[in-house]
Structures are given as structure tokens and as C-alpha cells.
Write a protein that binds this DNA or RNA. Structure first.
Lengths: 236, 236
DNA sequence: ACGGATTTAGTCCATATGGTCTAGAAACAG
DNA sequence: CTGTTTCTAGACCATATGGACTAAATCCGT
């Protein structure tokens, strides 16, 4: 930034929108109102992907609602290529789920088609400068959705009625080992107790968790917290 | 908004900061520069919680870096009470991890102490109006962190070397049912095949996933995606 | 149409797991 | 100090699971 515009290479942009009218409108806008270089346009996600591979643009403006391969899938695909392309998602609607998913898979910005053209240019500017840009209203929507997801996740374990709390210390240890896929014999060795003792503990665990087998106990443990918070995957 | 200020009840605020100087400074600022009503202040998280229970304010301004019970824990605690209190986090640093965790547990805003007082007032305004407010710079930081977390999660399954890809369609179905804690007999019934067939599939699954029993197969499936993306817990 | 992969299903056998009970030692709370 | 809980461990038995085969029917691609 300090160096001023004279050293800044014009960022190269590829536009993707299944609506051709829109496409040329945006292209014109960018070329007139900004300093960016629209190197290519595409009206389908699959074409877009090959164009991106060829031109290696800095920025991609991607319409999300497209038929056949939808925009989100396309974004995921492009991100996976890891070309350093910075993608800005573009839609007509401010559906929080869409916003969330787009940002989750790596979109660097999200703009509505209804927004003023100045805002579009500003967003591209910010994203080209390495930032992530979400207009305040969309950001607000995003966070509401984000927090709701988390709240549902966490309040689903009201601490009471979480049967894991009924387990004794030793039982927790045993269950912990079970959630690592260790056999009874293995548990016995790890805890320096006999295998029959392990079986006793396990049976008590089953009763307390109201399940009938090891797999169900492990699943209960994983889905209801406490144990094994380590590797569990994200999957909103 | 349309109704104008004359119908707007003055939002009641509680301030929490272990630094008394800061506390009175902010209090003064709010009382002079805004329309809000500072009903109480606290210099510790535990006192804050009881004050909040007593006064039921609309807004809480909470300093995050405090000794003993830290601000994040306090926020989580207050959110759990579900009093409809909207909490704005306040710190000196723009540590993305702090921002992420604060927003995750339900903070409705996040402001730096170094920000202009006008911005503080604006944030309170927005949050009081029911929105979630993050200044653009912090929002940007948040998203970088957010996307990095996700990328690490997903790229940890490089698609190749994910043994789940070796499974046939039917094997996937079987494994899917296993990850629901269903017994072989149950799987057989659900898929309308004999139990021995299920066993055959299961044995093939074991070989392909290089595991020795059902539990390990289920754990592999849960930890390496594809199946059962439903209930799996969040745990960044 | 041929060959490989997939899905189905069986046998045989060993071992692990699950259910129920009893029971002693140790730890702990009132 | 006494009753309760926890941890330990055993017996006994039924059933589920896992391993190693064989094999037929079907599907799929070239």
C-alpha cells in the first residue's frame, strides 16, 4: 500500500455468471469504474474452472446460483486446486446458509447483486489487497447463523441428562480407551486390571448409557462430549 | 428504527473491566456521548454475573483479559443463563483466536480498546438494535482464522490415501449403518440381505480400512469424513 | 461377448463380546 | 464407625463378531 499505485500490478479478474446480460454488465462496470483487468468470462462453472487454470487470475467473481454444477461446488473445486485465486461469491439473496457455506469453503468475499456498484468495486479492492470482505449486513447474518449452529450443538448437551455424567472415574477411563478402538484385552493391559474387570466396567457403562454394545457406547461418548474431544471433525 | 428515538427505551448497560480507571472512563464516555444507561459496573467476572442476574441489562460490555475467572468463561456462563443479554467483548488485542472463541460462545460484538470512542458507541447502537457487530478489520481477522481452521480440517483428508474411497457403494452403505451403532442383524434387515452377506461386506471393509473390528471401522469412518456428516460435533 | 469387479450367500471355526450374578477389598461420606 | 459407592474379579452361558474360504449371479466397461 505504501508503495502507491504505480507499482501495483493490475489485478486480473475472471467473471462467472450464467446470465450473459449480467456478465457483460459487470464486465463493463469493472472496466470503466476500476483499475482491474477482466481477462475472461464464463457462463458455466465447468468452463470457469478451466479458464482459471489457464489464466491464473488473482480474483474470481462467481455467481452462486447457477444450474448444473452450482457455484459452491465450483468454489470448493477451485480452492482445492490451491492456486491462490481469491474468490468472491455473488448472489441475489442474502441466505445465511449460503453465506456460511461459501465462507466455509474459502470464499474471500460475498456480495449481493443488488448492492451498489461502488460496493462491488470496493469489495474487489479489499479482496485484491489480501483481505476478506463481507458487507456489514451480510456479516451480521453470517454471525447469527454461526452462533445459532453452535448454540444448537452445545445446548444439545444440557449437562443434566447427559448420561456420561453418571459414569465413575474408572468407567470414564475405560470408555475413553474404548473410543480409541482398543479391545477389552488391551484396556485390561493399559489399566493393569484383569479382563473380567474391564468387562464388569463395560457392562456398567452400557447400563448407565442405556446402550447394548461397544459401538453404541463409543458413539454416545463421541456425540455427547467429554471424552475424546481431540480428533472430532467439524461438520456444521 | 422508523419509530424514532422517542419510543426507544434507553438500553441498560453493565460494564465489566478489572481496571477501575478504564471502567469509569468508559462509563463517562457512554453517559456523555450516548443515550444508554449504565446501570452497574463490575471489576470481576463473578460479581458481573450476579449483577447481570439482578439488573437484567440489555447490553454487557465485557473486558476479556481479566485475572481469575476470565472474560470468555464469564460470557459462556452468562449465555448459558439465556437471559437475552447481549454481550460485547472488549480487549486490547485483535488476537483472532480470542475473537473466534468470543463469537463462538455468543458475543454479539467485539471491539478493541484502541478504537475510537465513536466506534464503541456505534457498536453498542448496532448490538442494542439486535444486530451483531464486528468492525471490518476484526471481521477480516475472524474469517481468516475461520477459514484456516476449516482448511486444516478438510485438507487433513487428502482424498487419496483416504481408505474410505476404496469402498464400494454397498460397503459404504453397510459402514454407514455400522456408524449408527446398528448390529449385523439390523443391517441385514435394513438392506434386505442375509446376515452372512453383511459379514462378508464387513470383512471386506475391515481389510480395506486396515482395521480389525467394528469399532475401529466406525472410528475410521467418523474421523475421515464421507459417512455420517450429520451429528458429528464441532470442536475447533 | 469376455473378464473383472460387485453383490450376494454359504460353511466352519475361533474368539470376543454381552448378560447376569456373586463377592471381597478399598475408598469415602456422614 | 458404619453404610454406600467404587473398583476389583470371578463363574457361567449365550450370542455376536471376526477370519478364511468358496461360489454363484449380476453388473460394467471395452
Amino acid at each position: 500500500m505504501r508503495r502507491g499505485l504505480e507499482f501495483k500490478k493490475k489485478a486480473r479478474i475472471i467473471l462467472v455468471d450464467d446470465n450473459y446480460e449480467h456478465l457483460s454488465g459487470i464486465k463493463e462496470l469493472i472496466e470503466i469504474e476500476s483499475d482491474f483487468d477482466v481477462v475472461a468470462t464464463a457462463t458455466s462453472a465447468s468452463v470457469a474452472v478451466s479458464l482459471i487454470k489457464k489464466y491464473r487470475p488473482e480474483i474470481v467473481l462467481m455467481d452462486i446460483n447457477m444450474p448444473e454444477k452450482d457455484g459452491l461446488t465450483a468454489i470448493a473445486e477451485i480452492e482445492k486446486l490451491d492456486l491462490g485465486v481469491r474468490i468472491i461469491a455473488l448472489t441475489g439473496y442474502d441466505d445465511p446458509d449460503l453465506i456460511f457455506r461459501a465462507m466455509k469453503i474459502g470464499a474471500k468475499g460475498y456480495i449481493l447483486k443488488t448492492m451498489a456498484s461502488a460496493q462491488l468495486i470496493y469489495a474487489i479492492d479489499e479482496v485484491a489487497a489480501g483481505k476478506i470482505y463481507l458487507p456489514a449486513t451480510l456479516s451480521s447474518r453470517f454471525f447469527e447463523y454461526f452462533q445459532k449452529s453452535f448454540k444448537e450443538e452445545t445446548q444439545s448437551i444440557p449437562d443434566e441428562e447427559n448420561l456420561l455424567n453418571d459414569l465413575t472415574q474408572r468407567e470414564e477411563e475405560v470408555l475413553d480407551l474404548l473410543t480409541q478402538g482398543i479391545t477389552y484385552k488391551g484396556v485390561a493391559q493399559k489399566l493393569f486390571i484383569s479382563e473380567t474387570t474391564v468387562k464388569t466396567h463395560v457392562n456398567n457403562i452400557f447400563q448407565k448409557l442405556q446402550v447394548n454394545d461397544r459401538t453404541q457406547a463409543v458413539l454416545y461418548a463421541l456425540n455427547n462430549g467429554f471424552l475424546n474431544r481431540r480428533k472430532v471433525k467439524i461438520a456444521i
